[in-house]
Design a binder for these strands. Structure first.
Lengths: 236, 236
DNA sequence: TCAAAAGTGTTCGAATTACACCCATGG
DNA sequence: CCATGGGTGTAATTCGAACACTTTTGA
């Protein structure tokens, strides 16, 4: 068979919006760009797709290069294809968001990329259209997390209820009544209370919980309703 | 500045999942593929992205080639990049879903593509990974329509409440109580009742309604809740 | 002993569900 | 006059929102 002659071919990159959570606030992992143009500016971690590689494969590779982690929650967001988005040569970018347990991130591995965690709220300006990518990623996560329990992917194995609540509050930029929140979360049956307490946050200490993995898998596709009501949603 | 040498470049296609609604059921517009491989098999309408063209631009062009329509509701779904998805040469495809008023579709224009509307429920098998694309498009529309009033894009200027209800029932593959449905819809304030009736569907006739365009624009981003409850959702 | 965060119940109103009959009309 | 689909109301329940005090303990 003949090839599709006469058609143009383009560079394809994947860019990862990598989120973490420090127990208080959402953070984003950024790198100092190593190549021209815009060398040494802050940027998303990305890379070109290789000939034999799927998009998901490329995203996983890129993520693993930076963090050393495998099996991370990674989901495609969308393709960006403005002809002028990269000034050197037309490049499509496919974005992915990654949710990682910030504690698993090995700093050593990232040294070559000059990576740094920023509070999502005050991340620096990024190159090209990366700021828009981050905006869209935030929006996508709000959507997804309103219906599916993905935010647990950001937490360590053991976490406390106040941490969990901080997480939801930070994602939706809202305040949640803690009694209502705990009732709702408990109703999902996704949490298993552990006998230990985390004493770092307070004198009284907060009980650790872990995720019921089986129920998590089983309920993942179920529609939940963690979504705050419109008037509580701050859409900035 | 230098180019990104040593990197591979790929063909990029856009493929459109085009939905319509005949007053009873959701339909999908398919074409008989004109080129090898898989010539004469049923396929989504698509095309290669041109050097100076944005992705949205390519999708609009492709859609307009087939339907003659401009200004159609079109939204990117996602990128498909399996290295082997096109047997001739590696091609990425970016999918878009289009919601069109089926009455505006001009058959003449499409004759060259051998296009045909199929009931979504019994569409034929499609080439490559197009079946998966359609599945994902259905899922995406369910998501989106649960929160935003996009389904109005499928209706003609004047439509009846039974038509609207059929539409939601077909999208979610469920039965909705008509009293509850109308109450909910009315509460949005999106509908304006017209003095005329559509007599084609019954002897009594059903009143026509039109969309309040201003409120539609204003409320589009607001979170609604047309989503049926989990146990009513048939997830096939 | 007190500051600081964790944890716990109840009440109220709104929203959702379930449910059944009359209406208008063309044939 | 009757078959067909269009249109309407109410009661019961569930769900979400609002709300404040007690507990624990390290400093």
């Amino acid at each position: 068979m003949t090839k599709y002659t006469k058609q143009s071919r383009f560079l394809i990159a994947v860019d990862c919006i990598i989120f973490g959570f420090d127990g208080e606030h959402i953070k984003i992992l950024l790198i100092k760009r190593a190549l021209e143009p815009e060398k040494d500016k802050w940027s998303l971690m990305g890379g070109f797709v290789k000939p034999e590689e799927s998009l998901d494969g490329a995203a996983n590779r890129v993520l693993s290069q930076l963090t050393g982690l495998e099996g991370v929650y990674l989901e495609q967001i969308q393709a960006y294809g403005d002809p002028l988005r990269d000034p050197i040569e037309r490049t499509l970018s496919i974005t992915y968001f990654a949710l990682i347990d910030i504690n698993k991130y090995k700093t050593q591995l990232s040294d070559q990329f000059h990576a740094e965690w920023f509070l999502l709220k005050d991340a620096p300006k990024l190159i090209f259209d990366h700021d828009k990518m981050v905006e869209n990623a935030k929006e996508r996560i709000r959507y997804k997390a309103a219906l599916h329990p993905i935010l647990f992917e950001l937490l360590p194995k053991k976490f406390t209820l106040p941490q969990l609540q901080n997480l939801y509050e930070d994602v939706y930029n809202t305040n949640i009544d803690n009694r209502n929140f705990i009732r709702k979360i408990s109703a999902t049956g996704l949490l298993i209370k552990l006998p230990e307490k985390d004493k770092t946050g307070s004198k009284k200490g907060a009980f650790y919980f872990k995720l019921d993995k089986k129920k998590y898998q089983a309920n993942f596709q179920a529609f939940l309703s963690f979504i705050p009501k419109p008037d509580k949603l701050i859409t900035s």
